[in-house]
């Protein structure tokens, strides 16, 4: 009942789509408190090699493309490959077609995006950050999917942390003994974010 789970979610998209560097989002599912730590990654080509530093141990990824920009969809494909290579199939992928308020200028067909998402085991979402449409649903759905995927509560690598600061205490093969319940209760969150 009192478990707080923290999931790491990386956000991939071009720098100018109005993402914040880091933020947290708190939700409750069936009495479980879930905290999404959303890590924005630098989308510019010159920072591409630095991506793995940010992706590591992510539970989920949100890959955003602009429905009016075909190139941005191609970049999503390339990120998807990289994420699958880095994190395997444990990471839950959400492909997001943003700017649905500009439907008349659409250059990426919905069918194409749908088919691609299906082919890589991802789910497609449609949003308009400008009109705040579909964003809440995206986070709620992602959180629920990550929760379903992680029956256990081990740290990172596709499973949930017990709040931000979990006590795996593993290093060099030595494991710290856990509490009677096998988990640390009363975990705490960072409480704030930098954006």
């Amino acid at each position: 009942m009192n478990r707080s789970l923290s999931f790491k979610v990386v956000l991939l998209g071009e720098g100018s789509v109005g993402k914040a560097s880091f933020k947290t989002k708190k939700l409750t599912f069936d009495g479980k408190r879930v905290e999404l730590a959303i890590w924005d990654t630098a989308g510019q080509e010159r920072f591409r090699a630095l991506g793995p530093l940010y992706y590591r141990d992510s539970n989920g990824a949100i890959l955003v493309f602009d429905i009016t920009d075909e190139d941005s969809f191609e970049r999503v494909k390339s990120w998807t490959k990289e994420l699958r290579r880095m994190l395997g199939n444990d990471c839950i992928l959400c492909i997001v077609g943003n700017k649905i308020d500009l439907e008349k200028d659409r250059h990426v067909s919905m069918q194409l995006a749908e088919e691609y998402a299906k082919s890589v085991g991802a789910k497609l979402y449609h949003t308009s950050a400008k009109l705040d449409k579909g964003v809440e649903e995206l986070f709620n759905d992602l959180a629920q999917r990550m929760l379903e995927r992680s029956p256990g509560t081990t740290v990172g690598g596709g499973t949930a942390n017990n709040q931000n600061r979990s006590s795996t205490g593993t290093r060099g093969g030595i494991t710290i003994a856990q509490s009677a319940t096998g988990q640390n209760d009363n975990g705490r969150s960072s409480g704030s974010c930098c954006s």
Binding site: S6, K8, S21, F22, T24, A37, W39, A42, F47, A49, L50, L53, Y54, V155, G156, N161, N164, R165, S166, S167, T168, G169, R171, S189, S190, S192, C193, C194
Partner: peptide, 22 residues
């Protein structure tokens, strides 16, 4: 360090590391 960092601190440290690597 023996504990994972809080996510917000980890993000900042990752940005620090990424800057050095760049």
């Amino acid at each position: 360090k023996f504990l994972p960092l809080p996510q917000d601190v980890d993000y900042a440290v990752t940005t620090f590391r990424a800057s050095i690597e760049y």
